[in-house]
């Protein structure tokens, strides 16, 4: 097996706003292997979506990818590509699907047109061929009667069908990498499962790599091979899905897991992590999680922990001083 298809190193995406610097993504690094599914989990506002958008360089001003960040797709360094070359990557080598199928499709153009547009752009094919490919893709994502659906407008489709259409659009040019940003969050539970199945199936069939972003650990557990846990613009923990879910090392991961509903649990009462994500304008000093961490001690408030340990790295001083783990932490809030 050759190297990873996508390597992100020290990705920093800052927003230079009038009232201060917002460090939305602050030194994220990860690799994505070919055919692999990487889950990114974390609460809202921790930088997951910005990470995805950064990979496509679609962060709107005043957001900016800081100079020494690296995003390598195969042997191409995306941060150094010209805007024109970058457009060749978007929708072609790397595609993205979004959380809101209701608003992510342009309401005034037909589904077929919107899918064919990408094909015609990247494949340089004509109108008829683009249309054919669009129909093929709609069939692939499981829409009944794809030929007729081509001329439908988004408002004529249900939410699930729209997300299928979005997937069809994203996959129309056989991308190497698919960025799925909370693709099921806005959908009904039954539809969610269908979409997840579809994504799994398509990924297997098409052999692409996928980054699957979700705040829902249950969903990620189903689909991802590996998981990174993000908090406050940083990766707090990274590891194989199995390891993360059965042996979480970082207190934040533990908290997330505890707050996930388990269908088997008798008591549906959910535990939550105390407090909320701090403002990205003023990340806390030391460990960024320390204000909410049940185990935090002086060191956590002062020194920034690195990603420690090798097989399942965790950004926590507990890795060095496990004795400081308290009972309180395990009981949760």
């Amino acid at each position: 097996m050759s190297g990873p298809i996508l390597q992100v190193e020290n990705l920093r995406t800052y927003f230079h706003t009038a009232d201060g610097l917002v460090r939305a993504v602050d030194g994220v690094s990860f690799n994505l292997g070919r055919g692999e599914t990487l889950g990114i989990v974390g609460e809202s506002g921790c930088g997951k979506s910005i990470t995805c958008l950064s990979i496509l360089r679609l962060v709107d001003p005043p957001g900016r990818i800081e100079p020494d960040s690296t995003i390598r797709l195969g042997d191409r360094e995306l941060t150094r590509l010209s805007e024109a070359a970058m457009r060749e990557v978007r929708g072609n080598a790397i595609s993205m699907i979004f959380q809101e199928p209701m608003t992510s499709l342009n309401p005034v153009w037909t589904i077929g047109g919107q899918i064919a547009e990408a094909v015609r752009l990247h494949r340089g094919v004509g109108r008829a061929e683009g249309r054919e490919r669009a129909a093929e893709m709609l069939g692939l994502v499981g829409l009944a009667n794809p030929q007729r659906r081509l001329d439908d407008y988004p408002h004529e489709l249900s939410g699930g069908m729209r997300q299928r259409a979005m997937i069809a659009m994203a996959l129309a040019c056989d991308p190497d990498v698919l960025l799925a940003d909370e693709p099921t969050t806005a959908l009904d539970v039954t539809i969610q499962a269908e979409i997840l199945d579809l994504l799994c199936e398509l990924q297997e069939r098409l052999g692409m790599a996928m980054i699957f972003v979700s705040h829902d650990l249950g969903v990620v557990a189903q689909i991802a091979d590996r998981v990174i846990v993000m908090y406050a613009g940083q990766v707090l923990e990274e590891g194989a899905t199995e390891g993360i879910f059965s042996r979480p090392r970082h207190p934040y991961t533990e908290g997330l897991l505890r707050s996930t509903p388990k269908l088997t649990a008798k008591l549906p009462r959910l535990a939550t992590i105390a407090g909320s994500v701090p403002s990205p304008k003023r990340w806390p000093a030391g460990c960024r999680f320390h204000p909410r961490c049940p185990h935090a001690w002086d060191r956590c408030r002062e020194d920034v922990p690195p990603l420690l340990a090798v097989d399942q790295p965790s950004r926590c001083w507990l890795e060095e001083e496990p004795q400081r783990r308290t009972r309180r932490g395990e009981a949760g809030g």
Binding site: L56, V89, N106
Partner: peptide, 29 residues
Amino acid sequence: RQDYIRTARAKGLPERTVILKHALKNALL
């Protein structure tokens, strides 16, 4: 600011197309 503009950009469309095709028709309503 709408999501579908981001979608259009994510497709790799040139900014001209994004503005004149995807944004303008909606803005004209």
